[in-house]
Amino acid sequence: MRTHAQATAKHPHDDAPDTAAAFARLAALPAGPERHALRQDLVRAWLPMAQRLAGRFRNRGESLEDLRQVAALGLVKAVDRYDPARGAAFESFAVPTITGELKRHFRDHMWTLHVPRRVQDLRGRVRAARQELMQTNGGHHPSVADLAARTGLSEDEAKAGLEALDSFSALSLDAELPGAEDGYSLADSLGSPDPALDVVVDREAVRPGLRGLPARERQILYMRFFRDMTQSRIAEDLGISQMHVSRLITRCCTRLRDQALREQAPAPHRPARPHAA
């Protein structure tokens, strides 16, 4: 028999109403307006608890109003799935359901980068451990070894969780780097395609053809394209006319280009020869 103190004792949370009888009635009612109205009353009665749970996830990059909407959705699912015949209190069933809905929201909709589920879990454990350790050591950031000891993870796992802390959101490429001067941004630190790569490809393509040229023509091409000499200077050094140098350069370039194109062209398809009967 319950004592007077037990009967008048308050629930740990003021937002946990006594709705056991209402849930038993809901389970017995058939689908219809009466059951729908009772379901709505139960959702409204437990809505303050859902909003309290949503408040635990504030300051994580999502507005409190959106978090409350997600928590309300989790509450509706809890009301629809709760079975009073199992004997458990509704709150013990609803709290994990609502909290799981909030965590799924962060997991599926709030990450800018795609991070595996396991790494997301590591992030949560490392984040909680870091906050606890910073409260006990005067605000200093704990080391990877400290986080691993606190969470029971390996140092590699703790390091992966720390790296994931910065993967929840992404900076714009126009964002100025910390400590940078003159507006130096992330975009300024990115590389770009090297135009010399095409030159390397072209040189390798014409290398076989160059070996087949006469010595004087190879010398003229070297002087023109590698030593950047003018045609007049080449003609003067070789004792020939500038017009002759120009004709040789044009003829050699045309020959090398045609040969490179022939070698790069795909081989013609030859149909298979039929086997003799």
Rank of each mutant, 00 (worst) to 15 (best):
K77N: 14
A215R: 11
A54Q: 09
F225P: 03
H114D: 15
L177K: 09
A31S: 14
L177A: 00
A267K: 07
A94H: 11
L67M: 10
E204I: 03
L186V: 00
A272C: 12
A205G: 05
H4K: 15
G32R: 04
W46M: 00
P30A: 07
G152E: 12
Y184A: 07
A27T: 09
G212P: 09
T3Q: 04
N59M: 04
M134C: 08
Y82C: 06
D15L: 11
P30L: 10
Q51A: 07
R127A: 13
A175W: 06
L102W: 06
M243I: 11
D182N: 14
T99I: 13
F23L: 04
R56I: 07
Y82G: 04
A164H: 01
R107N: 14
A45E: 11
F90E: 11
D156E: 15
G209C: 07
L42M: 01
R39K: 07
A170T: 05
I98Y: 04
V70T: 03
H36Y: 07
L26K: 01
A128D: 14
L256G: 13
R150V: 01
A9F: 14
A145W: 11
L213W: 08
L238G: 06
L113P: 09
V95I: 05
V206A: 05
Q6D: 02
S63R: 03
D14G: 12
L210C: 09
L153S: 04
Q264C: 02
H4Y: 15
A149S: 03
F106D: 05
M1W: 00
V95A: 13
A85D: 13
A54D: 06
R81Y: 06
D228W: 02
R227N: 07
P33T: 08
A16W: 14
L38K: 11
T19Q: 06
H141R: 15
V79A: 12
K103T: 14
V126R: 00
V206K: 09
V144W: 01
H11I: 09
R218D: 06
S169F: 08
E34F: 08
A215T: 02
P214C: 06
A88Y: 12
D121N: 10
V144S: 01
V126A: 06
L67P: 07
F23W: 03
R60T: 03
R211M: 10
R81H: 09
L177G: 04
S246C: 04
A72V: 08
R211F: 06
L213C: 02
S246P: 04
T19V: 10
Q135G: 13
G55L: 07
K103P: 04
R216S: 01
S189N: 06
V70S: 10
H11G: 05
L256Y: 07
A7F: 09
P195I: 05
A196N: 13
D121T: 12
T254E: 14
A37E: 04
V43M: 07
A72T: 10
P214K: 04
L197A: 14
A148K: 08
L238W: 05
A21K: 02
R81G: 13
R251A: 10
R44C: 05
E236H: 11
E263Q: 10
R2T: 03
P208M: 00
R270T: 12
A88R: 08
D188A: 03
G191I: 05
V201A: 13
